[in-house]
């Protein structure tokens, strides 16, 4: 069972606005899906197995250096934004003064 409170909290974490009906319907879907997923409780897992272990997983790194020309892609990237001003991406106020 997922509570209504929890559903609202998840919606906030997900940054998604839902209507009451949508959230209610979503709750039912999720309970049904997690009901299916619960079968994983049947699987016994070695507790000292870490989740990122088992097979050879290595990090692929590169040198922390800038390899592209400054400003080469700026126009193209900024043009993709819904709202721009003077070559900057415009958003609503972030800081409260």
């Amino acid at each position: 069972m997922i509570s209504q409170e929890e559903m609202k909290k998840l919606a906030t974490l997900s940054r998604i606005e839902f209507t009451e009906e949508e959230l209610d319907s979503m709750k039912g879907d999720m309970e049904s899906i997690f009901g299916y997923i619960d079968q994983l409780n049947e699987v016994e897992v070695n507790t000292d197995r870490s989740s990122a272990s088992a097979t050879e997983r290595t990090n692929v790194l590169r040198e922390d250096e800038i390899t592209s020309e400054a400003g080469k892609y700026t126009d193209r990237m900024v043009d993709s934004a819904p709202k721009t001003m003077d070559g900057y991406i415009e958003v609503k106020k972030i800081l409260n003064n």
Binding site: E6, A11, I16, F18, E22, M26, D29, F34, K92, K93
Partner: peptide, 28 residues
């Protein structure tokens, strides 16, 4: 009305239900 609502309304309106469902499942 504010930055948070820009996010939540954009995502609420522009994502379909299946996308939203999987985001919620993952968030949970």
């Amino acid at each position: 009305k504010n930055l948070y609502e820009d996010y939540s309304k954009t995502r609420g309106e522009k994502f379909g239900m299946e996308v939203k469902r999987r985001i919620m499942i993952g968030t949970y």
